[in-house]
Nucleic acid binder design. Structure first.
Lengths: 223, 223
DNA sequence: TAGATTGTTAATCGATTAACAATC
DNA sequence: TAGATTGTTAATCGATTAACAATC
């Protein structure tokens, strides 16, 4: 846990995956692993793994490799998933409900503390052990619980207004399932976007071109 | 629609976003746009946009820019979302149901043609206009409908067996919501992974370091 | 025509990979 | 010790940005 300078987003986005693989290894009884073996399992180069980890300090030991449990825990605390940032879900359609019920927020750095919607069909109901509140309660709620993060699982059209209110209440980060471009309107806010349909379109493209073998990366055909 | 050589995955992953922005522009009455203005809206450089588009051909006109509708349609057909690849959803927990109900597969290159589960609580029910079938019907079903793509919204533990069966039935691409590494076991198969918890951990990290200003990207502190 | 903006080549920047000395 | 494997520097590769001639 030495260094801590600027770490590129490419490296950061690989950390959860390292965490996941190390966790599995641990469950399967491994206590030690080399960058070489981990690289084979993860489909990366050993070089990249060592390079990535050394952004945060020297976790290994020459001639031995890495202690699986120690490394997992170190990456976990680098990610900050030992925290319990209070988080609210706004919008309890199918996706919001799925996240409320299935997502183990506690294991990934958050604690779900509130669920909001506008529909009389769900307001007042209990989901994941919490009573769904009407969105108009958000200001009062934030005065008490001060969530700093919100999951946006509302229709895109509703997002600009809701986000404005949430930012007004002190929310500073969003897990955004809408297509509203939060980061563009609020510069000092952290946003992770989940664009499932973008992902699906990418799949479509890749299926389409799966067979059409691309004529080697370095094409030279101006002849 | 000229070129078509190797196009890097970085470019491909930006295409759905171009499509989305162009679609919005069109809805808002724009008929023409320059790379410069599009870049400002999307938070990219104009250079990158021109570079990206020219992987697929010259869609613009010097002195004018791009015709929004034409460009949207071109990107749509490059992505292949004008297709209707038959697709099945396997696993109707909260996420599977959310996708069945909310995801507009038709708009993104697919046609949802089957939904499968094992639970007696859902088998036989109707979701999104389809009767949920027991997974043991999959072989028979594939004999008739030949879906080439499956959405995996089952528990990770169930994935290896289900994937084996699906591949056996001729399924060649997966939209994978589990943590089972499909691509590692089946080399000739296309996989798009959706790891929501990885995304959540990344958000956690970014929140944690949001304030700790990283001391400029090019650090030079060996003194 | 003059002005605008593309398509494309060249320059820069950053990320990945290779190599190897350090060291357990 | 000898063997293994890291941490780290240097080399390569690829992606992004800048620049500008072509052209509408």
């Amino acid at each position: 846990m030495a260094k801590r300078e600027y770490v590129s987003i490419s490296v950061v986005r690989r950390l959860p995956r390292y965490y996941r693989f190390l966790n599995d290894l641990l469950k399967n009884g491994f206590s030690r692993i080399s960058s070489r073996e981990l690289s084979a399992r993860m489909g990366l180069t050993a070089s990249q793994i060592r390079q990535d980890l050394n952004c945060f300090g020297g976790f290994g030991q020459q001639g031995y490799g890495y202690n699986v449990e120690q490394l997992r825990d170190s990456i976990g605390s680098i990610l900050g998933i030992d925290r319990k940032f209070p988080i609210v879900i706004v919008g309890v359609g199918n996706i919001g409900r799925a996240l409320a019920v299935n997502m183990n927020f506690d294991a990934f750095g958050f604690q779900l503390c509130g669920i909001f919607d506008v529909s009389p069909a769900v307001v007042g109901k209990r989901i994941a052990g919490l009573e769904v509140l009407h969105i108009d309660e958000i200001e009062r709620f934030c005065g008490v619980s001060s969530p700093k993060t919100a999951v946006l699982t509302i229709p895109t059209a509703a997002a600009p207004d809701i986000v404005r209110r949430l930012v007004g209440c002190g929310v500073r980060s969003f897990w955004n399932y809408t297509h509203y471009d939060v980061a563009r309107s609020y510069k000092d806010v952290v946003v992770e976007n989940v664009h499932l349909s973008d992902n699906l379109m990418t799949l479509c493209y890749r299926i389409k071109y799966a067979d059409e073998k691309p004529p080697e990366p370095t094409a030279n055909d101006e002849a």
